[in-house]
Structures are given as C-alpha cells and as structure tokens.
Amino acid sequence: MIVRIMGEGQVEVADRHFPELDKLDDELLAEVQSGDGAGFRRTLHALLDKVRELGEPLPDDSLEPSELILPAPDATLDEVRELLASAEPDTGLIPPV
C-alpha cells in the first residue's frame, strides 16, 4: 500500500505490516477521543516512525496515488480529530486491511 505522510513524501508498506501499525492507530484513536495530548503526540510519532521504518521510500519524482494519507508529525490533536471525522467511525487513520 502506498502511504503518504503529509509534508514528507510517500512510502510503500507491505500489507503484512498493517496489523502492527493498526495497534498504534488504535492507541492514537483512543488518545484523540480522550483528549490525551501527551499520549497523542507520543503515539503519532511512534506510528509515523514505524511507517518510515517498515516502508520503502518512493522516489521524490514518483506520482503514485496514495492509498493512505497520514498527518504530518507536527499535526495538532484538533487537526487529527478532523481527519478522523472524515473516516469510518472507530476505524482510526488506518482502515482495516
């Protein structure tokens, strides 16, 4: 799956890694819902770091469509709350694979 991190670029992440990413996404969703700012920041960075670690970066000049878009590392709790509002209820940023 092609994943874009806003403001950074794209990586290709194998489907086999999504159960691991989904655990972090579930934590992030709970922290956003509870308003836990410190937990949100920690988990957002952990999720983005894991995507970078597990994914293969695509060339900067690649124009592949992104199947998943994740917020920038400096996104606020409110910005992520808005992204989640446009997703399916209780699925988090990463839809079930």
Rank of each mutant, 00 (worst) to 15 (best):
R4K: 14
L77R: 00
I2S: 01
P73N: 11
E53G: 05
R52I: 11
M1E: 00
D74N: 11
F40I: 01
G7K: 02
L93Y: 09
L77E: 09
G37Y: 01
S34E: 13
P73H: 11
P71F: 05
I5K: 05
A30G: 12
E53Y: 12
A87G: 08
V3F: 03
R4F: 00
P71H: 08
D26N: 13
G7M: 04
A85P: 08
D26C: 10
G92Q: 03
L63E: 15
L77A: 11
H17S: 06
E56W: 07
A38G: 06
L48T: 00
E31L: 11
D78C: 00
S86L: 14
A87V: 07
Q33R: 15
D49I: 06
E56G: 08
P65V: 10
S86Y: 12
L77I: 12
L44W: 11
E8P: 05
P96G: 00
A14Q: 15
E53A: 13
V32H: 09
G35N: 00
L93K: 10
R16L: 09
G7S: 07
D90A: 14
D61F: 10
P19Y: 01
L84G: 11
L48V: 08
A87F: 11
S86C: 06
L47N: 03
E67M: 02
R52K: 10
M6C: 05
E56N: 11
A30S: 14
L84H: 02
V32S: 07
R81W: 02
I94G: 00
K23D: 04
V97A: 13
I69Q: 05
I94W: 02
L63S: 15
F18N: 03
F40L: 06
H17I: 03
R41Y: 06
L28N: 01
V32W: 07
V80R: 06
E82M: 12
E12K: 09
G37E: 15
A87K: 15
I5V: 12
A46R: 15
P95T: 09
I5L: 10
A85C: 09
L68H: 00
E67R: 12
V13L: 07
A85H: 12
H45Y: 05
R52M: 07
K50G: 02
L48S: 02
L54E: 04
L54C: 01
D26P: 10
K23A: 12
A72F: 09
A46H: 05
V13R: 10
E79F: 03
E53P: 02
D60R: 14
A30L: 13
E20F: 06
D26R: 15
E27F: 14
G92N: 08
L28E: 02
E20T: 13
L83N: 00
V97W: 12
E67V: 12
D15G: 01
G55S: 00
V80A: 07
V80I: 05
G55K: 02
P59V: 06
R16Q: 14
A87N: 14
R81L: 11
P65S: 04
P71T: 05
R81S: 14
D90R: 13
E56A: 13
E88N: 13
P73S: 06
S34F: 00
R41I: 01
G9E: 02
T91K: 06
E31V: 04
P96E: 03
L24Y: 09
P89G: 07
A75H: 01
E88L: 14
L84N: 12
E27H: 14
S62P: 03
G37N: 07
S62F: 01
R4Y: 00
L21P: 04
M1W: 04
